[in-house]
Protein backbone atom coordinates (compact mmCIF):
# COMPACT_ATOMS: atom_id res chain seq x y z
CA UNK A 1 0.00 0.00 0.00
CA UNK A 2 1.39 3.36 -0.94
CA UNK A 3 0.55 6.43 1.01
CA UNK A 4 0.92 9.92 -0.38
CA UNK A 5 2.26 12.91 1.52
CA UNK A 6 -1.18 14.18 2.42
CA UNK A 7 -2.17 10.89 4.05
CA UNK A 8 1.19 10.63 5.77
CA UNK A 9 0.78 14.06 7.34
CA UNK A 10 -2.77 13.21 8.44
CA UNK A 11 -1.62 10.00 10.11
CA UNK A 12 1.28 11.82 11.74
CA UNK A 13 -1.06 14.49 13.08
CA UNK A 14 -3.59 12.04 14.49
CA UNK A 15 -0.80 9.94 15.96
CA UNK A 16 0.75 12.93 17.68
CA UNK A 17 -2.65 14.01 19.03
CA UNK A 18 -3.40 10.58 20.49
CA UNK A 19 0.12 10.24 21.86
CA UNK A 20 0.21 13.60 23.62
CA UNK A 21 -3.39 13.27 24.81
CA UNK A 22 -2.86 9.76 26.15
CA UNK A 23 0.33 10.70 27.86
CA UNK A 24 -1.22 13.68 29.62
CA UNK A 25 -4.20 11.57 30.72
CA UNK A 26 -1.74 9.08 32.19
CA UNK A 27 -0.03 11.93 34.01
CA UNK A 28 -3.31 13.11 35.51
CA UNK A 29 -4.41 9.64 36.58
CA UNK A 30 -1.06 8.67 38.10
CA UNK A 31 -0.93 11.96 39.99
CA UNK A 32 -4.34 11.24 41.50
CA UNK A 33 -3.16 7.87 42.77
CA UNK A 34 -0.16 9.37 44.53
CA UNK A 35 -2.31 12.00 46.16
CA UNK A 36 -4.68 9.37 47.51
CA UNK A 37 -1.84 7.35 48.94
CA UNK A 38 -0.18 10.04 51.04
CA UNK A 39 -1.86 10.59 54.39
CA UNK A 40 0.30 13.11 56.05
CA UNK A 41 -2.25 15.79 56.64
CA UNK A 42 -4.04 16.11 59.93
CA UNK A 43 -6.45 18.36 61.73
CA UNK A 44 -5.19 20.08 64.84
CA UNK A 45 -6.72 18.37 67.89
CA UNK A 46 -8.25 21.61 69.17
CA UNK A 47 -10.04 22.29 65.84
CA UNK A 48 -13.77 22.89 66.32
CA UNK A 49 -15.91 20.08 64.94
CA UNK A 50 -19.55 20.04 63.92
CA UNK A 51 -21.93 18.41 61.51
CA UNK A 52 -23.36 21.73 60.47
CA UNK A 53 -22.33 25.10 61.78
CA UNK A 54 -25.03 27.71 62.26
CA UNK A 55 -25.45 31.20 63.64
CA UNK A 56 -28.24 32.96 65.46
CA UNK A 57 -28.16 36.75 65.19
CA UNK A 58 -30.25 38.54 67.80
CA UNK A 59 -31.43 41.81 66.29
CA UNK A 60 -32.46 43.16 69.70
CA UNK A 61 -28.91 42.94 70.96
CA UNK A 62 -27.32 44.32 67.81
CA UNK A 63 -26.50 47.98 67.93
CA UNK A 64 -24.61 50.23 65.56
CA UNK A 65 -21.33 49.76 67.39
CA UNK A 66 -21.45 45.97 67.57
CA UNK A 67 -22.26 45.77 63.89
CA UNK A 68 -19.40 48.08 62.99
CA UNK A 69 -17.04 46.08 65.22
CA UNK A 70 -18.04 42.84 63.51
CA UNK A 71 -17.50 44.33 60.07
CA UNK A 72 -14.25 45.96 61.08
CA UNK A 73 -12.65 42.85 62.56
CA UNK A 74 -13.81 40.59 59.75
CA UNK A 75 -12.63 42.85 56.98
CA UNK A 76 -9.36 43.58 58.76
CA UNK A 77 -8.27 40.01 59.51
CA UNK A 78 -9.29 38.80 56.07
CA UNK A 79 -7.63 41.64 54.18
CA UNK A 80 -10.90 42.68 52.57
CA UNK A 81 -10.20 45.69 50.33
CA UNK A 82 -12.02 48.93 51.04
CA UNK A 83 -13.30 49.60 47.51
CA UNK A 84 -15.75 52.42 47.99
CA UNK A 85 -17.36 52.32 44.55
CA UNK A 86 -20.63 50.41 45.17
CA UNK A 87 -20.18 48.74 41.77
CA UNK A 88 -16.99 47.01 42.85
CA UNK A 89 -17.48 46.81 46.59
CA UNK A 90 -16.29 43.65 48.32
CA UNK A 91 -18.36 42.63 51.33
CA UNK A 92 -18.01 39.62 53.58
CA UNK A 93 -20.29 40.91 56.32
CA UNK A 94 -22.18 44.16 56.13
CA UNK A 95 -25.29 46.00 57.31
CA UNK A 96 -28.43 46.45 55.37
CA UNK A 97 -31.88 47.78 56.30
CA UNK A 98 -34.44 45.19 57.45
CA UNK A 99 -36.83 46.02 54.60
CA UNK A 100 -34.12 45.11 52.07
CA UNK A 101 -32.86 42.00 53.86
CA UNK A 102 -36.40 40.61 54.16
CA UNK A 103 -38.11 42.23 51.15
CA UNK A 104 -41.00 39.75 51.18
CA UNK A 105 -41.93 40.90 54.71
CA UNK A 106 -42.16 44.55 53.76
CA UNK A 107 -45.41 45.97 55.08
CA UNK A 108 -46.65 49.52 55.00
CA UNK A 109 -47.82 49.44 58.61
CA UNK A 110 -44.62 47.95 59.99
CA UNK A 111 -43.02 50.32 62.50
CA UNK A 112 -40.43 52.55 60.90
CA UNK A 113 -37.80 51.56 63.41
CA UNK A 114 -38.04 47.93 62.30
CA UNK A 115 -38.35 48.73 58.61
CA UNK A 116 -35.23 50.83 58.66
CA UNK A 117 -33.34 48.92 61.31
CA UNK A 118 -29.94 47.79 60.14
CA UNK A 119 -29.34 44.05 60.09
CA UNK A 120 -26.03 42.21 59.74
CA UNK A 121 -25.88 40.12 56.59
CA UNK A 122 -23.29 37.61 55.46
CA UNK A 123 -23.10 34.38 53.49
CA UNK A 124 -25.90 32.10 54.70
CA UNK A 125 -23.84 28.91 54.39
CA UNK A 126 -26.93 27.22 53.00
CA UNK A 127 -27.56 23.55 53.52
CA UNK A 128 -28.59 23.39 49.87
CA UNK A 129 -26.37 26.05 48.32
CA UNK A 130 -27.17 27.06 44.69
CA UNK A 131 -23.69 28.57 44.30
CA UNK A 132 -22.09 25.17 44.90
CA UNK A 133 -24.53 23.55 42.53
CA UNK A 134 -23.65 25.84 39.64
CA UNK A 135 -19.87 26.19 40.09
CA UNK A 136 -18.19 24.48 37.10
CA UNK A 137 -14.89 23.77 38.86
CA UNK A 138 -15.84 22.97 42.48
CA UNK A 139 -14.05 26.18 43.43
CA UNK A 140 -16.92 26.77 45.80
CA UNK A 141 -17.93 23.70 47.74
CA UNK A 142 -19.56 22.61 50.97
CA UNK A 143 -17.30 21.31 53.71
CA UNK A 144 -18.30 18.39 55.87
CA UNK A 145 -19.15 20.81 58.67
CA UNK A 146 -21.56 22.73 56.42
CA UNK A 147 -19.33 25.69 55.68
CA UNK A 148 -19.68 26.85 52.09
CA UNK A 149 -16.05 27.42 51.20
CA UNK A 150 -14.27 29.27 48.45
CA UNK A 151 -11.08 27.96 46.90
CA UNK A 152 -9.73 31.15 45.39
CA UNK A 153 -6.94 29.19 43.71
CA UNK A 154 -9.38 27.31 41.54
CA UNK A 155 -11.97 29.98 40.73
CA UNK A 156 -12.03 30.87 37.03
CA UNK A 157 -14.15 33.97 37.58
CA UNK A 158 -17.21 32.93 35.56
CA UNK A 159 -19.51 34.51 38.19
CA UNK A 160 -22.15 31.81 37.76
CA UNK A 161 -22.24 31.56 41.57
CA UNK A 162 -23.08 35.27 41.81
CA UNK A 163 -26.07 34.74 39.53
CA UNK A 164 -26.99 31.66 41.55
CA UNK A 165 -26.80 33.22 45.01
CA UNK A 166 -30.22 34.65 45.94
CA UNK A 167 -28.72 36.62 48.84
CA UNK A 168 -26.17 38.83 47.07
CA UNK A 169 -23.52 37.46 49.40
CA UNK A 170 -20.81 37.07 46.80
CA UNK A 171 -18.34 39.68 45.62
CA UNK A 172 -16.10 39.66 42.59
CA UNK A 173 -12.65 41.20 42.35
CA UNK A 174 -13.25 43.55 39.45
CA UNK A 175 -9.65 44.77 39.80
CA UNK A 176 -6.51 43.97 41.79
CA UNK A 177 -7.56 44.50 45.41
CA UNK A 178 -4.07 44.96 46.90
CA UNK A 179 -3.84 48.73 46.87
CA UNK A 180 -7.21 48.99 48.60
CA UNK A 181 -6.15 46.99 51.66
CA UNK A 182 -5.14 49.57 54.22
CA UNK A 183 -3.27 47.47 56.75
CA UNK A 184 -2.37 43.96 55.75
CA UNK A 185 -2.90 41.06 58.12
CA UNK A 186 0.29 39.12 57.58
CA UNK A 187 -1.31 35.85 58.64
CA UNK A 188 -3.98 35.74 55.94
CA UNK A 189 -3.64 36.03 52.18
CA UNK A 190 -5.30 38.58 49.91
CA UNK A 191 -7.08 37.77 46.69
CA UNK A 192 -6.18 38.43 43.08
CA UNK A 193 -8.28 40.14 40.45
CA UNK A 194 -10.83 37.99 38.66
CA UNK A 195 -11.93 35.68 41.47
CA UNK A 196 -15.08 35.58 43.56
CA UNK A 197 -14.92 35.80 47.34
CA UNK A 198 -17.26 35.82 50.32
CA UNK A 199 -17.54 35.05 54.02
CA UNK A 200 -15.95 31.68 54.83
CA UNK A 201 -17.31 31.44 58.39
CA UNK A 202 -13.69 32.01 59.52
CA UNK A 203 -12.69 28.48 58.52
CA UNK A 204 -9.09 29.36 59.35
CA UNK A 205 -10.12 30.14 62.94
CA UNK A 206 -12.46 27.15 63.30
CA UNK A 207 -9.69 24.83 62.12
CA UNK A 208 -7.51 26.25 64.89
CA UNK A 209 -10.17 25.97 67.56
CA UNK A 210 -11.57 29.51 67.53
CA UNK A 211 -15.11 30.70 66.78
CA UNK A 212 -15.67 33.18 63.93
CA UNK A 213 -14.27 36.61 64.64
CA UNK A 214 -17.63 38.39 64.43
CA UNK A 215 -19.04 36.09 67.10
CA UNK A 216 -16.20 37.04 69.41
CA UNK A 217 -16.74 40.78 69.17
CA UNK A 218 -20.56 40.66 69.08
CA UNK A 219 -21.02 40.79 72.86
CA UNK A 220 -23.45 37.88 72.73
CA UNK A 221 -25.56 39.21 69.86
CA UNK A 222 -24.33 36.42 67.61
CA UNK A 223 -24.41 32.84 68.85
CA UNK A 224 -22.52 30.17 66.97
CA UNK A 225 -22.78 26.41 67.22
CA UNK A 226 -23.61 23.01 65.77
CA UNK A 227 -27.25 22.96 64.72
CA UNK A 228 -27.35 19.15 64.57
CA UNK A 229 -26.49 18.94 68.26
CA UNK A 230 -29.72 19.23 70.34
CA UNK A 231 -27.73 20.46 73.33
CA UNK A 232 -25.98 23.27 71.53
CA UNK A 233 -26.79 26.83 72.47
CA UNK A 234 -27.99 27.53 68.97
CA UNK A 235 -30.59 24.79 69.21
CA UNK A 236 -31.71 25.89 72.65
CA UNK A 237 -32.32 29.41 71.40
CA UNK A 238 -34.19 28.17 68.33
CA UNK A 239 -36.33 25.89 70.49
CA UNK A 240 -37.58 28.75 72.64
CA UNK A 241 -37.66 31.73 70.27
CA UNK A 242 -39.26 32.74 67.01
CA UNK A 243 -36.45 32.94 64.47
CA UNK A 244 -36.55 33.77 60.78
CA UNK A 245 -34.30 33.01 57.85
CA UNK A 246 -33.87 34.90 54.59
CA UNK A 247 -36.04 33.78 51.65
CA UNK A 248 -37.00 30.40 53.10
CA UNK A 249 -39.30 29.58 50.18
CA UNK A 250 -36.30 29.11 47.89
CA UNK A 251 -35.35 25.92 49.70
CA UNK A 252 -31.73 26.85 50.17
CA UNK A 253 -32.02 26.33 53.96
CA UNK A 254 -29.77 29.08 55.29
CA UNK A 255 -27.69 28.43 58.42
CA UNK A 256 -28.08 32.00 59.61
CA UNK A 257 -31.12 32.64 61.81
CA UNK A 258 -32.39 36.02 62.92
CA UNK A 259 -34.20 36.74 66.18
CA UNK A 260 -36.54 39.71 66.06
Amino acid sequence: MRIDRRQFLKILGIGAFIGVGGWSMFEVVSKREIEAFVERYKKVPEALQAKRWAMVIDLKKLDEKIMNDCIEICHRIHNVPALLNPKEEIKWIWKEKFKYVFPEMKDEYMPEEIKNKYVLVLCNHCENPPCVRVCPTKATFKRKDGIVMMDMHRCIGCRFCMAGCPYGARSFNWRDPRQYVKEENKEFPLRMKGVVEKCTFCYERIDRGLPPACVEVSKGAIVFGDITDPNSEVRKILASNFAIRRKPKLGTKPSIYYLL
Binding site: E35, V38, R40, Y41, K42, K43, V44, A47, F141, R143, K144, D145, M149, D151, H153, Y203, I206, D207, R208
Partner: peptide
Protein backbone atom coordinates in the same frame (compact mmCIF):
# COMPACT_ATOMS: atom_id res chain seq x y z
CA UNK B 1 -0.92 19.49 48.24
CA UNK B 2 -0.71 21.68 51.32
CA UNK B 3 -3.03 24.18 49.72
CA UNK B 4 -5.63 21.52 48.91
CA UNK B 5 -5.37 19.97 52.37
CA UNK B 6 -5.87 23.31 54.14
CA UNK B 7 -8.43 24.93 51.88
CA UNK B 8 -10.43 21.92 50.81
CA UNK B 9 -10.16 19.52 53.74
CA UNK B 10 -9.59 21.78 56.69
CA UNK B 11 -6.44 19.92 57.66
CA UNK B 12 -3.73 22.26 58.81
CA UNK B 13 -1.00 19.96 60.16
CA UNK B 14 1.73 18.36 58.10
CA UNK B 15 3.54 15.39 59.60
CA UNK B 16 6.94 15.03 58.00
Amino acid sequence: DWRDAVVREGKTLYVN
